[in-house]
Each structure stands twice: as structure tokens, then as C-alpha cells.
Amino acid sequence: MTIEQLDAVRSRPEVAEAHPMLFGIVSAPNHPMVTCFGIEASDPRLARGEWLSGRREAFGSTDDEVFLGARAAEFFWGVGWGDELAVGRATFRVGGVFRNENGFEDGGLFMPLSMAQDFFGREAVSSVVAVKLRDESRGEVFKAEIEVAYPGIIALENHEFSQNYNSFKILTFTAWAVGICAFCLGGLGVANTMLLSVFARIREIAVLRVCGFSERQVGALIFGEATIIAALGVVMGFGIGFTVLAVMEATPQFQGYVQANITVPVLGGIVVTAIFTAMLGAIYPARYASRIQPAEALRYK
């Protein structure tokens, strides 16, 4: 959004506040990807943040100071107030460190908007403008008016923003793609394991049939074993998953991009998905096992 468009939005009577932000990615020594946020000194983030060092009032007072999110300062650079910091081709002084409630932003670097525009060569524009309306119930109307007035600008409410922002879309899509692949691989894994198990015990299954096990009982046996495998997988998966998440959260290179948000429904979904995958994978082995002909199987070496 250009500065003219921003001014026009600010001048609308229904707008209480409008705060522009410019996103930028820059590299730093040992850190190929650093997220920078260019904001105005009046941005509520600065007021809401818990200042660990430096002063909020100093934000934007000089053109050589940057400010760090607490996570970025703690893990990423290990620098503090007054230290020098090399970012891109420039060197800045750390004007302060503050804790931000948003983990993504807490792992980033903040600088005044005008400085960020110079630094990234994007004069008089911002990536996003956060608007607070006097009457929040007029959100839909406001969005429609903005999109008509400024073609090419997309107006979104908070929840829509997080759902529609391209990067988030890509991340969400990637997560789903990985999840679906994992689901398929899990099913194939169970099928393969159970099929190998059936082949390895073909004589034993034949003996069970000779001893009076019905096709259904043999099938149930295979499904039961698949369920046990799935349950073990869930336990191991939780153990490994929680550990990896904890490590990622504590790793400076992730700058707060990873924030574990594990709820009971998510855990329930994982258990159900694992059991369902195992059942799906066990269908063919169970079918195969239940149809074993004892006479043939007993000849099997």
C-alpha cells in the first residue's frame, strides 16, 4: 500500500487507527534468513511489548538503531542493548529488546518504517496496514469499500489474514501435503509390516485354521496386531514429536517461527488417524491371512 493510500485510509471517519508494516527478509552473518519488520513509532506492538532493555521512546529517534524481539536477542544473536549488529550490508546498534506476544515477530528485528523502506528499497510503501475501526461491526462494509476504492488491495479481517496470507497458505498446503504423504506411507508401512508378518507366520496361521479359527477370527487377529502397532507408533510419535518441537522452539535459527500449539482435539485426531491408517493398511494382509488354505500353507517352507 502506498503512502497516499495509507493517508486516505487514515482519513476515513470509521478508521480509529491504521498502522503500516513493511516485511523484509535479509541475511546476516551465520543467519541466512532474518525477518525484519518496519513499523512506526506509534505502533501498538511497541506499547504492548514487555521491554527488557532500552526504551520504547527511543524507537525511531535515530537512523542507526534496530530493536530486537526477545527471542531473537536471546537465541539468535546473543546481543543486548547498545551492541552492534551486522544485518545485510549494514551495521546497526541495538536500541532495545522487547518481548512480543507473537512468537513470529518475537524472533525478528524491528526498525522504523522509513528506515526499513530505505533499507529494502521500497520507498513509501508498506506490506500490510493494520486498521482498527471505531465500529467493528462495520468490518464487512469497510472491506468491500476498500477493495472497490483501491483495486489490487485485499482487505482481510485478522482471522482471514492468517488464513489467506500467501506464505501461510503455502505453509498450510505444505503441512497438509506432508501429512497426507505421511498418512499414505504409514498405511503402506503397516500393510508391508503386516504382510511380512503374515508370510513369516503362514504355517502358524494355517495351524490356527486347523485348530478351528474361523476366517473372521484370523482377520481379527491381524487387525488386532495392526492396532497394537498403531498404538506403539502413536506413543513413539508423541515422544519424538514433542521432543523435536521442544528442540525447534528452543533453537535460535527458527526465530520463533515454530510455536507448538497442541490441543486435546489435535491429540485425539492423531490417535484416530493412526488407528484408521493402521486399519486401512491391515485390510489386505487380514484378507490374505484369512484366506490361507491350510494344506498349502503347511507345505510352505
Partner: peptide, 19 residues
Amino acid sequence: NLIPDLTVEENVRIPALAV
């Protein structure tokens, strides 16, 4: 044709398990 991983008793019980 006994199941080697099971005990004698467990093998003997198999037909009872089936019914």
C-alpha cells in the same frame, strides 16, 4: 506344527480359544 514362541500350555489352549 506348534507355535514356537508360545509355551506348551498356550499351544494346547489354542483350540479352546477358537471356540
